[in-house]
Design a protein around this nucleic acid. Structure first.
Lengths: 333, 333
DNA sequence: CCTAATCAGGAAAACGTTTTCCCTCCAACT
DNA sequence: AGTTGGAGGGAAAACGTTTTCCTGATTAGG
């Protein structure tokens, strides 16, 4: 009893109503072949009348294309995958494609399971959206469909990966601080085990060097939390009371830093500038003062990944690592 | 040039290698028909050797089922749809189903566009995940596939909707405040135009009445922001300095309230208790003190919606509004 | 030894399209 | 008048499965 109350209306029904053959109806609806305009119109009218919706399944079987891609994300929380997915959707939409969303929750078993499901359904391509920037193992080898890695690149440099510009982000942050007159700049960031934390710290150091400056103290690695930001900035104030700028590894830390500074009596943004990374609206806008931060262009990463995947599906693969520029979002901090 | 380098390996290849007919191979792999165990094994071995992956497309064409559903979400930000999608995925996973994710961004045109794409692909069912609890227009009438509305219910009571228990949530919050000794309780919440704000306020009033108490002042409707929380609580303190509890419409407001109270010199949680709604980790856990809040069970809403959709696909629809219970998450506020 | 029943497996239809090849007109040339 | 050639449209193959029906062989029962 699987609700077949009314049979699907197929192109054969349309053809019958229009008084043409099945093949002719197909041509009329798809603009192929040579037909009189009057015939086309008659078929279109019949299709309209019957509410005909072509079966993508049948079409796929014949053409081998499903106009479908899979997105495998390891980001169960959604902070990163949401904007990326949006970008991917934008990119795919113009090609009338649509995406399966699979959440692997960082579990390789689950990931392989999803992969199998996607391959069975003959997706035209796959996007792997990571939560961390650290390079990851490729999905599988000898895969028949094109794959693009977004945000977290693949360990295999011959794969196609799209990443955001971590060093560039650090550079933008430092540049902003320096150009607004800050000279004694500290860096508070996440765990050293995260490549993004290391990259941002390295980017900050080299950027400061270009201005003939140095960080105040060593970069403080901790966790991506407000509590760490508050704690670390208190420590900074003890060892270097004249600090006038803090570059934070992400917005959440930055918010903790802002609270820590304010509560220590540092008037903001007069006596010190703070810059974060992520441009996460709910955090950056609610901070006091609203946080100046660097947007990693996640939506653009997704968009780019989608474009590259479409190109690869079309037979024009573009292996290598593609870097999407970051940009500064100036608020009041 | 669409990369047909190597032709797909089909069940015919498997059959040939195993030395059986195509139909027999199908039966062997699917456990149908009556075959010798040795034959089945031989076919399985052949399939393994060739790396055979059955084409879900061909199967769907024949059976009319795609084992695929569509999720249409209006929640471009992702705050609500992420946990719901997770729940849906969990529910579908056991049925070997997989979901298309479509973000309508609250645009009816885009929504219809997505709907068409989904119907073309012959999804077995559709879940509509709302961002607001306000009832929404049905997706379309005379739809051939089952639809379940999640979080935001459909205006048509004959549709199947799954919602969270807004009044119950308010009740849990008030109960917690009262049981921890609070008597002078204010309510600060979001815009009155949002049904959830109105429901939560109404729930709070009736719950207080059950304890023979009343709200301190009228509910303060504003926006779902920290700034509003800070501003509103300052106002409350002016008109009712002895307030000892605040029930907030969501966690973000609650966080603003906590900051406002603390900065006004109210020691927390000794002199006042604060409860939010949402249990949004990044906000509730980072609050000072960590926020006690009500979890609306969004993941459960998604899970339930998935279950009901599966049942409907199986020919057992369950029209009506289904309410998922909320639960209190006690932290330190 | 003959018949009926069961077991194994093959042949072919079916799903709903798209596309290729073919046929039949009819007009325009030579 | 005979030949091209193009326009308009039909017939049928093809995609890769599942399933139904059928046939031949083996076994059990009488």
């Amino acid at each position: 009893m699987t609700l077949p109350a009314t049979r699907r209306v197929g192109i054969a029904d349309v053809a019958a109503l229009a008084g043409v053959s099945l093949g002719t109806a197909s041509k009329a609806l798809n603009g192929r072949g040579t037909l009189r305009e009057e015939t086309r119109a008659r078929v279109r009218a019949a299709a309209e009348e019957l509410g005909f919706t072509p079966s993508a399944v049948a079409r796929s079987l014949l053409t081998g294309r499903t106009f479908t891609v899979g997105i495998i994300t390891t980001d169960s929380y959604g902070r990163f995958s949401i904007p990326m997915t949006r970008g991917v959707e934008d990119s795919l939409g113009v090609g009338e494609m649509i995406a399966f969303l699979c959440d692997s929750r960082d579990d390789p078993i689950r990931e392989q399971h999803h992969l199998r499901k996607l391959l069975e359904r003959q997706v035209d391509g796959i996007i792997v959206a990571g939560r961390r920037t650290d390079a990851r193992e490729p999905l599988a080898d000898n895969l028949q469909v094109p794959v693009v890695y977004a945000f977290g690149r693949s360990r295999d440099p011959h794969d196609c990966s799209v990443v955001s510009d971590e060093r560039g982000a650090a550079h933008l942050a430092i540049e902003h601080l320096v150009k607004t007159g800050r000279r004694r700049i500290a860096h508070i960031t996440g765990p050293q085990s995260h490549e993004s934390a290391r990259e941002r710290a390295a980017g900050a150091a080299s950027s400061l060097a270009a201005f003939e400056l140095e960080l105040v103290g060593e970069p403080l690695f901790g966790s991506w939390t407000e509590a760490w930001g508050r704690f670390a900035v208190a420590q900074v104030l003890r060892t270097a009371p004249d600090v006038d700028g803090v570059f934070c590894g992400n917005d959440v830390i930055a918010r903790g830093v802002l609270d820590g500074l304010r509560e220590a009596g540092v008037s903001l943004p007069m006596r010190a500038g703070v810059v974060g990374i992520d441009n996460w609206g709910v955090v950056a806008e609610a901070a006091r003062p609203p946080l100046t931060t660097v947007d990693l262009g996640l939506e653009e990463v997704g968009h780019r990944a989608g474009d590259l995947l479409l190109a690869a599906i079309d037979g024009h693969p573009t292996p290598g690592v593609h870097v999407v520029p970051s940009h500064l979002v100036v608020r009041e901090s």
